[in-house]
Nucleic acid binder design. Structure first.
Lengths: 316, 316
DNA sequence: TTGTATGCGTTATCAG
DNA sequence: CTGATAACGCATACAA
């Protein structure tokens, strides 16, 4: 691998000048710059960014920490973030936590050790608070998205959770369902808390009772969604608003098992690309932009209702 | 940030010893090792991997280059690869090329500049050959997956494309369809070439004619799939085997527009998670393992047929 | 405009 | 078992 010293030697100048010429420093004669660029190309020079990063104390890498890469929502976030970051000359180092706080801590440490320029984070569902994040990251710029700790500093990109849940629940009501339960997810996550609020508001605005017994907590996996689905059926529900996409799949399993038809006998609404578009790609883009622009505010990405068969009781 | 020098000073020893103690070098007294580890913990030391990487000339980063992160297939590959790499202490730097060879070249250069330990690559569809890869990467370990250049050295992980296409096409035949066209994709990619072969074999084994006019090339996007779908309808096809998932969506658009019902009037088969499982997660895992184990062979990941309504003419 | 000198934090090679 | 020293490749403050 050729270095700036090789180029310097070849041209009879010093590495400093080569470094300056290559990094676009204006304090270098146009002539030498051209000569340097020429021989650099000829010698197949590629700048060692590791060395540059060490010297500068920071890198052009942005860490992205998410629960699972292959979850549709998150893969879209990453896709959006990477494309924006890449255009600005940054690269994305991806760590998935598999919803484990320990893995999240490890990921943040790794990123810190790489002296990343910033971190885009969507925390593991069980993380009690953001203390570990603050402690590890120190003053490394932090952008949170989707799942955020409100007390942590830095920009936050969140979905319009309350509004989305409201829309989804109201849609079920308008479709003619009357006893609507909810797979509420974990209350450790602000996003799920807000969705529960939206669900409740929609019920109350429609004059329907809010029944705490129809709120199934801690359901985000397919398995727990299945169990909650069975309970909801037993409780006489005719519809469910699922705050998570995977628990909804479990609920569908339960409905199928009981021979209950969707949407004729039972309505289902969930924030996913198919029924409530959360615009994850745009969320990732927004997170990347927030990092690049050094923003510290909170942005809310709207959710868009998509009417589908699984909830259109009247229209089938 | 505390460094090994800080620790050394605090203990009245030299940085060398601290480094050795921390990196598990056996040539250090058990007592000193413990002391070093203790004060390291107390001072909140975190090793600067950038410096370590510079010194060692290589990093614990593996680059992953794929067309699009948020494509279901690829996000699963990345998910599988990251989990395996992470367990082995590696981190994943992700670059998406958006199917552009220029972006692919840029990505490979970036990775090379980071002195990554290896590269997992699924090339852009239009890349004519692997020359650019070889030229940029030099002797950086390369693992190709899904879309591979056979002439490039190093391990390759491919789907059982021929077999999968054969199964899919035969399934259409068994379902009662007789004039089966194909959205064949790009012949620049080995994967699509093999799928076309499988398609043809299935037809011929069933005694059906292979008609070159029913082969719609260069269809991988939804738009081109739509156009090809219209042509197929015009040509009197009653089914399509789509070698790509997105072109199939376009074909569905065309069928809907013409009021043609799937699967009653028209059969559709495509390699995707819903009809032909390509096991992308396992493919990513295999790629990561191949890198970790320094393999240089070619592995074939089987494809599994999943019967769905869109192709079950007889069973509806 | 260019050269000189120094250091980023770590590890490897010696010597002791 | 430990210390001294150099080097990885680059960027910058300072001097010229």
């Amino acid at each position: 691998m050729t270095t700036i010293r090789d180029i310097a030697r070849a041209l009879g100048i010093t590495p400093s000048t080569v470094s300056r010429a290559l990094s676009g420093n204006p304090r270098v004669k146009e002539e030498t710059r051209r000569a340097v660029e020429k021989t650099a190309r000829e010698m197949g020079y590629e700048r060692n960014v590791v060395a540059a990063n060490l010297r500068k104390g920071r890198s052009m890498i942005v860490g992205i920490v998410i629960p699972r890469i292959h979850r549709e929502f998150f893969s879209n976030c990453i896709g959006g973030a990477e494309s924006v970051l890449n255009q600005a000359g940054y690269s994305a180092l991806i760590c998935q936590t598999i919803e484990s706080v320990e893995a999240e801590i490890q990921a943040l440490k790794t990123l810190k050790n790489y002296r990343v320029a910033g971190v885009l984070l969507s925390h593991a569902i069980n993380a009690p608070n953001g203390d570990h994040v603050k402690e590890i990251l120190g003053n490394t710029p932090l952008i949170q998205f989707d799942r955020v700790f409100p007390d942590l500093p830095g920009a936050k990109i969140v979905g319009a959770n309350c509004d989305g849940a409201y829309k989804a629940t109201r849609h079920l009501i308008e479709a003619g369902y009357r006893k609507i339960g909810t797979l509420a997810g974990y209350m450790t996550s602000q996003a799920y808390v807000e969705r529960l609020v939206g669900y409740r508001m929609a019920l109350e605005d429609a004059g329907l009772p809010f029944d705490e017994k129809l709120v199934y907590y801690n359901t985000i996996a397919r398995e727990t969604g299945y169990e909650a689905g069975l309970k909801a059926i037993g409780a006489g529900c005719d519809a469910l608003y699922s705050a998570g996409a995977f628990s909804a799949l479990g609920a569908i399993d339960a409905l199928k098992e009981k021979g209950i038809r969707v949407p004729e006998d039972f309505g289902l609404m969930t924030p996913s690309l198919s029924t409530l578009n959360q615009h994850p790609f745009e969320m990732g883009e927004a997170a990347a932009h927030a990092f690049l622009e050094g923003r510290r505010d909170t942005q809310v990405i709207p959710m868009e209702l998509i009417e589908r068969q699984s909830s259109n009781k009247n229209k089938t």
